[in-house]
Amino acid sequence: MDWIFLTELAINGALTGLLYSLVAIGLVLIYKASSVPNLAQGGLTMLGAYVVLALSRDAGMPLWLAIPLAAVIMFGMGFGIERVALRRLAGRPVVMILMMTLGIDIFLIGTTLAIWGGTSSSMNLGISYEPLLMGDIFISRIHLVGAGVALSLFAAFMLFFRTRTGIKLRAIADDYMASWSVGISVERGVGLSWALASLVAVGAGVIWGEIQGVDQSLSILLLKGLTVAVLGGLDSILGAVIAGVIIGIIENVGAEFLDQFVGGGSRELIVAAVLILTVMIRPHGLFGRHDIERV
């Protein structure tokens, strides 16, 4: 076995995994506030990419302006989604909210198809496709940038959840009734979690849009993001980051060995196996909180 090759597979796998974490972090943010896996996170990622594209390619803005502006727009959009689609469902069974997020996902796919059509466009970030040579190992530059974005967002959220607003958001995740009783606006908190998840979706959309082109297939990232989030524990941002790295490595290294036997498609099988095994063996994931039980 060639160790250098194996290391290269592992490192690039870890970087790709962190890009899955970008999607998973958005899922975790909303799960924390509403106890619902947001099935629209893939759609939001796709929308984030389209909004950047609309501002940069269609409106002619430079990327350094288009990306932050898209972030602001999507942030507001997140609040809007809560206000229009979710507030009326407060207190309803969780499965209704889940179905609503699925509806939002389908709606976003349909809307982007109607506005921008289905042909793939490129993001044109201007990052070289020439791999970076570190020692004897080739590393993809865009993946490196994306991993940096994921880790920065992770650090930012760790800090945010220690601020007063962040603590109030965690309080909402714990107990709606108690939150209301001390004057915390649960509705605004849930809105904020959607806004933050939509903000993260811009980061994920830009990176993934650069890697695989901007079209509706970006929404399928939900499946990878969801798998990572479930392995990480659904309500743990740290879990989403670590699970992303783990899944990325297993997927990249595993596929290299398995593909010769099953002839391609082993990536999907590996991810499916991780999801199924997690749910069977460790349903609250690596870092998910157990519900505290006392007598």
Binding site: R164, I167, A171, D174, M177, A178, S181, I184, I292
Partner: peptide, 24 residues
């Protein structure tokens, strides 16, 4: 302010964070 029935503390927060969460 209403302290509801059944001791609804924010279980995954520390007592100190529970107090912070209630601050206007």
């Amino acid at each position: 302010c209403h302290v509801v029935e059944g001791r609804h503390v924010f279980e995954h927060l520390t007592p100190d964070e529970n107090l912070t969460a209630a601050a206007p």
